[in-house]
C-alpha cells in the first residue's frame, strides 16, 4: 500500500506574514519552512507504517510550489517519507484553493495512493479546505480534523474527528483523503542520519504537462477567487493594569471590575 502526504512550504513561523498588494499574493521572500501542520500528517503516516497494521510499502511526500519548495520536501523525507514528488510550473503560480486542489489531485493520480494525508491547515493561507478539494477530484471520501486513526480490517480506518461539539467516530474505506489535526500526535525530530541522507532519496520533479493538468484551470488568471484587499483587525482597547500593592484591595478592585460588567 502507498500513503501520499501533501506538504507545503510556508513562511517560517517567525516571519511576519503579509500580502504583497502588487500581486495579491503572500509575500514569500523571507525564511521559509515546512508547514508545521504537515509534520503531523507525516508522523501519522510513519506511525501507520511502523505499526504494521497495514502493509504500507512506501510513504511519498507531494508538494506543489516554486523551486525552493524542494527544501520542504527534503525535510519531509528527513521526517520519514521514502521519496518525494515536486510539482512545479510557472503556470501554477497564483492558483487559488480550487485550482491548487485540482493540480495536486492530478499529481496524486499518477501515484495511485491508498491513503492521502495532509495537515489540517497551512500556516500561511489557512483555508482548511485543500483536502476536501483533492478528495473531490480523486473521487475519494474526505475526513477533516482527524485526531485518531485505527486500522479496521484490511482496508478501512476508524477515525476520530475533533468537532466543536465533541468527537465523531467515523469508519472510512480506503482509499481516502484525511486531514489530521495537530492533536493527533507529537511529530518526531528529524534524525541526524535522516537529515544527512535526505538528498539521496528519490525526488521527482514534474511539470503541469507531466501530470496532464489543464492549463486553463490553474494559475492566478484562471482562479475563481481573487484577492482584492485586506485590512488589519481593529486595535484592542488598552487593558487596565491593577498593581498588586495590597492583595485584599487588588481582589476587591478585580471583583468590582467584573461586577460592573455583569461578568460575575
Amino acid at each position: 500500500m502507498k500513503i501520499c502526504v501533501l506538504v507545503k512550504e510556508v513562511p517560517d513561523a517567525a516571519v511576519q506574514k503579509r500580502i504583497d498588494p502588487a500581486t495579491g499574493r503572500m509575500d514569500r521572500s523571507g525564511e521559509k519552512n515546512l508547514n508545521p501542520y504537515d509534520t503531523h500528517a507525516i508522523e501519522a503516516a510513519m506511525q501507520l507504517k511502523e505499526s504494521g497494521a497495514l502493509p504500507i510499502e512506501e510513504i511519498v511526500a507531494v508538494s506543489m510550489g516554486p523551486e525552493s519548495a524542494v527544501r520542504a520536501l527534503h525535510k519531509a523525507v528527513s521526517l520519514g517519507a521514502d521519496r518525494s514528488v515536486h510539482l512545479t510550473d510557472a503556470a501554477l503560480a497564483g492558483s487559488d484553493v480550487a485550482a491548487t486542489g485540482y493540480a495536486l489531485a492530478q499529481t496524486l493520480k499518477r501515484e495511485n495512493p491508498d491513503l492521502v494525508l495532509l495537515g489540517q491547515q497551512s500556516d500561511d493561507g489557512e483555508c482548511y479546505t485543500i483536502g476536501a478539494v483533492v478528495a473531490d477530484h480523486l473521487g475519494m471520501p474526505s475526513l477533516t480534523q482527524v485526531i485518531k486513526m485505527d486500522v479496521e480490517g484490511g482496508n478501512s480506518l476508524r477515525a476520530e474527528r475533533q468537532a466543536e461539539y465533541g468527537y465523531d467516530t467515523v469508519q472510512v474505506s480506503l482509499p481516502a483523503v484525511i486531514s489530521v489535526g495537530d492533536a493527533i500526535n507529537e511529530p518526531r525530530y528529524p534524525s541526524l542520519k535522516a537529515i544527512m541522507g535526505a538528498k539521496k532519496k528519490q525526488l521527482d520533479t514534474v511539470s503541469a504537462a507531466d501530470v496532464a493538468i489543464d492549463a486553463s484551470k490553474v494559475g492566478g488568471d484562471h482562479s475563481a477567487a481573487q484577492w482584492t484587499g485586506s485590512k488589519e483587525p481593529p486595535k484592542k482597547a488598552p487593558g487596565r493594569i491593577i498593581e498588586d500593592e495590597d492583595t485584599a484591595q487588588t481582589v476587591e478592585q478585580i471583583v468590582a471590575w467584573l461586577d460592573e460588567r455583569k461578568l460575575i
Binding site: N33, R71, H74, Y189, L192, I195, M196, A198, K199
Partner: peptide, 15 residues
C-alpha cells in the same frame, strides 16, 4: 547547505 540548516533547526527545536 540544506542538510546543515535542517540539522541546526532540529537541534534548536529539541533544545
Amino acid at each position: 547547505p540544506d542538510e546543515l540548516r535542517m540539522l541546526s533547526e532540529a537541534l534548536r527545536d529539541f533544545v
